[in-house]
Design a protein around this nucleic acid. Sequence first.
DNA 1: GATGAATGAGGATTCATTCAT
DNA 2: AATGAATGAATCCTCATTCAT
Lengths: 209, 209, 209, 209
Amino acid sequence: MSSKQKRLPREVREQQMIDAAIQVFSRSGYHSTSVEEVAEVAGISKPMVYIYLGSKEGLFTACIHREADRLVQAVRDAIRADDPPELGLWQGLRAFFGFVAENRQSWVVLYQQARTQGEPFSHEVAAARARVLDEITAMVVAGTGLPGGGRIISAKDAEILARIATGAADALVDWLLDHPEETPESLSDRVLNLALVGVERATADFPVP
Amino acid sequence: MSSKQKRLPREVREQQMIDAAIQVFSRSGYHSTSVEEVAEVAGISKPMVYIYLGSKEGLFTACIHREADRLVQAVRDAIRADDPPELGLWQGLRAFFGFVAENRQSWVVLYQQARTQGEPFSHEVAAARARVLDEITAMVVAGTGLPGGGRIISAKDAEILARIATGAADALVDWLLDHPEETPESLSDRVLNLALVGVERATADFPVP
Amino acid sequence: MSSKQKRLPREVREQQMIDAAIQVFSRSGYHSTSVEEVAEVAGISKPMVYIYLGSKEGLFTACIHREADRLVQAVRDAIRADDPPELGLWQGLRAFFGFVAENRQSWVVLYQQARTQGEPFSHEVAAARARVLDEITAMVVAGTGLPGGGRIISAKDAEILARIATGAADALVDWLLDHPEETPESLSDRVLNLALVGVERATADFPVP
Amino acid sequence: MSSKQKRLPREVREQQMIDAAIQVFSRSGYHSTSVEEVAEVAGISKPMVYIYLGSKEGLFTACIHREADRLVQAVRDAIRADDPPELGLWQGLRAFFGFVAENRQSWVVLYQQARTQGEPFSHEVAAARARVLDEITAMVVAGTGLPGGGRIISAKDAEILARIATGAADALVDWLLDHPEETPESLSDRVLNLALVGVERATADFPVP
DNA sequence: GATGAATGAGGATTCATTCAT
DNA sequence: AATGAATGAATCCTCATTCAT
């Protein structure tokens, strides 16, 4: 059945491998994933992986690169999709939750797996994640309409906002997957509602600097 | 080298092991950590780990348990330490960031490592995290003054708030560590400020349900 | 030393492993045998054993299976080889002693090692031994001419006979190996003679039920 | 609960250990038995075993010695118990099955475990087993009344008979334990009956040498 | 006499990686 | 281009054995 595979061009084979690898890496984690399993899922033999990607680390790095591209592209599309410049916070949140929920595997590989592994990936991953964070920062800024609105936020603040968004989203997507009755939309509602409640209370005793 | 044993009572040795394990686990991740390395850092021999903690998994579980205890206790103390009953959200945030920043390793082990590992830890970790989340939920509720204040939040909403808090904190601690000029206090300021700004903007176009 | 591989097809290597394993298992016993030693004797590296047979237990099981096959086949051949349909008990005994004497290692692995090991092998071994016992039972029944002859023996009795045969053979093979002046034939003579003597004596005082 | 045991005289402690060891050795086999487990069953601590018996091997050897004594004594008692010198074959078989069934653990340790282990025990065990075999030979001879009856059997034949008896008994006791509805007596009946049937058939075509 | 503490040595198992075909 | 065959190097875990108290 699987002996003597059809001779496919390199590009195609490589994508098959990366597809399989992302699937397995996101499910089992970097160390628990064996090259053998990836090869099996990809329907090829182990040596192919080494011929094309060089090593297990190279395979993971390839996943990082490709998924960073996909994420950045997805975020850009989300921004462009809603042409009207006055999106509002809700619109931004919804887009973000929906996006992460729909690109769960990419997200897991880039943000959970990559982070918990030690040194070998620090460089590669840091760069890839920076690109994604930048894009998300842009989206958040655009989504909240902040610079144009009331107070002006600094670059630092925008960064913080992006971190909050990714961190909260990461945690909330887990919750979302455990509560099938909720949707990205309803979750966005809840989050905003909570924020309003909390902040209303807070404004009473909080000495705004 | 260290072949002359120190003959310490079990309790002490156990804590040494767990100390070492948290250090190594948080640095290298669960899978990349070898029991041997933990033993070396703890200044004992491998079999001791197995005699006292049973297995690598048992060792990790012991870390989870102990750090969950420490974390819960620290949060409780932080809340109680400030006599004035009206803490406000700022107080809560500050306590939380402060603790996580000062206990980075515990946090990594509890929240990052534990999450990315597969099944074996689901049970143990879920229980430990539930305890922490409960405590944080309580803190958040107390901090916002809910449900005595404005709107009443449901259990589901409290859960979401706790997730946001932990998720955002996780992401922000990274940022905090990269910006030594900031403190838990100043970060708390920024976060609240941003929330105010965002929400003010949002209230304009957001149809509160 | 043997680092340059011979690149043999799987079937061949598998038989080499099993050959080596039977040798070592029968010499040292299951627990004292290390997979490493088996690999060395087979002239391959440890991982090959795991790739092909899965585990030490799988290796042992493979031995059991193969030797059970060989034994059953040998007994069948021995019976069929002698054309005259009236083989008699002597013929059967001779074939049996001859085979066990010539296949001492197989016998040890199948009957001694397997029995003294605990649970892991109960299933596999029980099945393999049942096949052998069945065959021996058939042989015994054919050899004694039952049930066409005098009394009819029940299934239970046939089982008992087979047990006696294997148990006695086991013990007698030890004796045979210690007495090089004896042959399977002469031993068979002695056994039958003893049986005659004993039973003649017994019929005097034994009240046949 | 178990710290600081009552100071017992050496003799008593030693017997406790050997009792426990026989239990565990016969259940789990030599290699699977850990000194720790024996100590636990004996209700003492591991170092005691080493102080008293020197090593795991010494522990096993002590078991061999003591059980060989017990077995020899039991066989002697069985012989003496039936004073009337004309016991008959059935009487002998019954005594033997009953005896092995009642001394199962000793039997297992001496005959099954000891045999399947490699070199270390060859000497010790061979001597112990020889004593038991001699005694059984005597019992068998007495039980069958052979020397006084029809044909005279040689020393060699007596040895063979003893081997058959022990081998068959070993195999049949397994069967007996699996069939609680049978007793040593009923099994003896079956065996004799089978022997009669078989030999009757055999005498027809068997050329007695 | 008795034990808790401690370890050196060894065995099963897995896995990334490389050849020979 | 593609793969079956093969292995070196870890890693987890266990156990007999010793020492300090």
